[in-house]
Computed example of a mutant assay.
Amino acid sequence: MLVYVDDILITGNNADFVQHVISALNKIFPLKDLGELHYFLGIEAKSLSDGKLLLSQSKYASDLLHKLNMQDAKSVKTPLAPGCKFQSAGTEVAEDPRLYRSVVGALQYLTITRPDLAFTVNKLCQYMHRPLQSHWKIVKRVLRYINGTRDHGLLFEKSHNLHLIGYCDSDWASDQDDMRSTSGYCLFLGSNMISWMAKKQQVVSRSSTEAEYRSLAALVAETQWLKSLLTELRLKVTTPPLVWCDNLGAVMLTTNPVMHSKTKHFELDLWFVREKVAKGEIVVKHVPTQFQIADLLTKAPSSNQFLTLRTKLNVHSLSTLSLRGGVRGKTDNTSVG
């Protein structure tokens, strides 16, 4: 059950029990049952004929574009130009800093169903205090990208397993102002992505291995929390979560019991992951860089690579999915509230 103010979303694998809960609540509170879910807190849910579910924010994106008079803007393939670097100096201050903060804040909410925007929006958020004209140009590029991908969203489908599989990555010393790295990870439950992150690291990493290990530790912490949550929901995860990392040095550190002087400054992360690996609570393996899905959450790749990784993050277009299997259901609001 999900409750937000006076809006309630109830779901389950037993229709009779769901109806029983609604009836029990209705005896205490006046409720209006709106039927099958289609719209909730700005998120649209489209049920596909093959049992899949697409969560998108096309109306929210359209409203944002109309507000800025960019509904007819020419679209681009990626939200960020390949190899684009952010800096806190170099151009004049943005003409309207308040507008910049408002739009970037709105883009943050859009990342709920658009992980392909997570990295770019995270970078833009780092300049809220003093946005430049160059940053505002990037915001406009993001809006042009959104204009061409309004119907894109996060796809969910029935999964035959509840295995937790994660990918972690980092872009070492990518920040031009303070040389801090960017961490990124994505976590799948079966075939569905349920958690992701793109975030600037809080301290400077002295090597690429250290930067990767910090990302790895963040993902391990997330898997442990989700594993605990699934246990509370009475969903047993029998197979240890699997984490894929493309830095061989970081992978080797997870099983190497010897302490080195070069690892003392991130000793807590080091032992945290090692302990989980030693107990068999998590498995860490190496993946070649070309198969690293989390790459999209740490940098701006080429257009072709971006489109490939976007699909692997389960971001799809409603029109493409409709051509494959068709869409059923109505378009009105159908949450319980």
Rank of each mutant, 00 (worst) to 15 (best):
6 D>L: 00
7 D>C: 08
8 I>S: 02
11 T>A: 15
15 A>K: 14
22 I>W: 00
22 I>N: 06
23 S>T: 15
26 N>T: 14
27 K>S: 14
29 F>K: 06
31 L>R: 00
33 D>M: 09
37 L>R: 08
41 L>V: 15
41 L>Q: 10
42 G>Q: 04
43 I>C: 06
44 E>K: 10
48 L>E: 01
53 L>C: 03
55 L>F: 06
55 L>C: 09
56 S>P: 06
56 S>K: 09
60 Y>I: 12
61 A>Q: 05
62 S>P: 02
64 L>P: 07
64 L>Y: 06
66 H>L: 11
71 Q>C: 01
71 Q>V: 00
73 A>M: 04
74 K>R: 10
76 V>S: 13
80 L>Y: 10
81 A>C: 10
86 F>Y: 01
88 S>H: 05
88 S>M: 10
91 T>L: 05
93 V>L: 14
94 A>P: 04
96 D>Y: 06
97 P>F: 02
98 R>V: 15
99 L>K: 09
99 L>V: 08
102 S>R: 11
102 S>V: 08
106 A>M: 03
109 Y>D: 08
117 L>P: 10
121 V>S: 04
122 N>W: 00
124 L>S: 06
135 H>K: 06
138 I>R: 00
139 V>G: 02
140 K>R: 12
140 K>F: 11
141 R>G: 09
141 R>Y: 02
146 I>R: 08
148 G>A: 07
149 T>V: 00
150 R>W: 03
154 L>A: 05
158 K>E: 06
162 L>I: 09
163 H>R: 11
166 G>R: 03
169 D>G: 12
171 D>Q: 07
171 D>I: 00
171 D>C: 04
174 S>E: 03
177 D>K: 04
183 S>R: 07
184 G>V: 03
186 C>F: 08
187 L>T: 15
187 L>Y: 02
190 G>E: 02
192 N>S: 10
192 N>V: 11
193 M>P: 07
193 M>C: 10
195 S>Y: 02
196 W>T: 08
197 M>D: 02
199 K>T: 07
201 Q>K: 11
205 S>M: 11
211 A>E: 02
213 Y>C: 05
215 S>G: 15
216 L>V: 00
223 T>G: 08
226 L>A: 05
226 L>T: 03
227 K>P: 04
227 K>V: 01
228 S>F: 13
229 L>Y: 04
229 L>N: 05
234 R>L: 10
237 V>Q: 03
238 T>L: 14
243 V>I: 15
244 W>I: 07
246 D>Y: 05
252 M>L: 10
254 T>D: 00
256 N>D: 12
257 P>F: 01
266 F>E: 01
266 F>H: 01
267 E>L: 13
267 E>H: 14
269 D>P: 09
274 R>N: 04
278 A>W: 00
278 A>V: 15
281 E>D: 15
283 V>M: 12
285 K>F: 01
287 V>T: 14
289 T>H: 01
290 Q>G: 10
291 F>I: 05
293 I>Y: 11
293 I>T: 12
296 L>T: 09
297 L>Y: 13
297 L>V: 12
297 L>E: 10
300 A>R: 07
306 F>R: 02
308 T>S: 14
308 T>C: 11
312 K>Q: 15
313 L>S: 07
314 N>C: 15
314 N>V: 11
318 L>Y: 09
327 V>Y: 05
328 R>W: 12
330 K>C: 11
332 D>P: 07
335 S>M: 05
337 G>D: 12
